[in-house]
């Protein structure tokens, strides 16, 4: 029963979501509305599960005084402070001037933006090591990356503009910004579409396997 009931739930919910697309009438539209509401409630609980599990692991680390347990204590403290202020703020917790908004503006945004910005350095150093025009394909990758980056900064057009200013017959079409836009809108569009269609077909077939009960990995081992 530990496997059969979940498989039955998956099949029913999946089939209802498919049918309501083709028959958006009672009872399927009603079931779709219920399922969508349930889905958002369960999703919230799934995020809660993740947060509570993090607290459980961190508390265990602090309790057992494991290596670097102090950082786990900071995690628990920051979580507790954010949650306390968020609950205290009530329904309007997000409004400007609230404590929660202060945490969001001065802690969450600086941390998340800097964390992603840090990747700029690692991507740059990784590309310096990895980018070698070893063969034709690698050269294409290198050229596309170069033109997109060069075309997105003002110095790109300024260099070509300088050649135009000294009288060289350089057409506007080969301005780095125009080349970057063309690569993004034409070549990149073609490649992205091929990848997107491939992924979508994979998702469709996997979804079908899940609904039919052929794919059961999400149910676990026992």
């Amino acid at each position: 029963m530990r496997r059969e009931i979940p498989m039955f739930i998956t099949a029913v919910v999946g089939v209802v979501f498919v049918i309501q697309y083709f028959i958006p009438h009672w009872p399927f539209n009603q079931m779709n509305a219920w399922f969508s509401d349930w889905f958002s409630i369960i999703s919230a609980c799934a995020i809660w599960l993740g947060a509570l599990n993090l607290m459980k692991i961190s508390a265990n680390k602090v309790y057992r005084k494991k290596k670097e347990w102090g950082y786990s204590a900071v995690i628990i403290a920051c979580f507790a402070i954010t949650v306390f202020i968020g609950f205290k703020g009530g329904e309007s917790f997000r409004e400007a001037g609230t404590g929660f908004d202060w945490i969001y503006r001065f802690a969450y945004i600086p941390l998340s933006a800097t964390m992603f910005a840090l990747l700029a350095f690692f991507v740059a150093s990784a590309s310096y090591r990895a980018f070698r025009a070893r063969n034709f394909e690698a050269t294409l990758l290198l050229l596309a990356a170069f033109f997109v980056m060069f075309g997105r900064v003002p110095v790109g057009d300024a260099v070509v503009g300088w050649f135009q200013n000294i009288g060289l017959p350089v057409p506007d079409a080969i301005m780095p910004s125009n080349i970057a836009t063309w690569i993004m809108n034409v070549i990149n569009a073609a490649g992205q579409r091929a990848i997107m269609i491939g992924i979508a077909l994979g998702i469709v077939s996997t979804s079908l396997r899940i609904i039919l009960g052929i794919e059961r990995a999400h149910l676990g081992g026992d």
């Binding site: 993740g50 995690i75 402070i81 968020g86 917790f93 945490i103 969450y108 998340s112």
Partner: peptide
């Protein structure tokens, strides 16, 4: 970051 992010999404 980890603690405040978890708290942010929790709330």
């Amino acid at each position: 970051f980890v603690g405040s992010s978890a708290g942010y999404w929790f709330i």
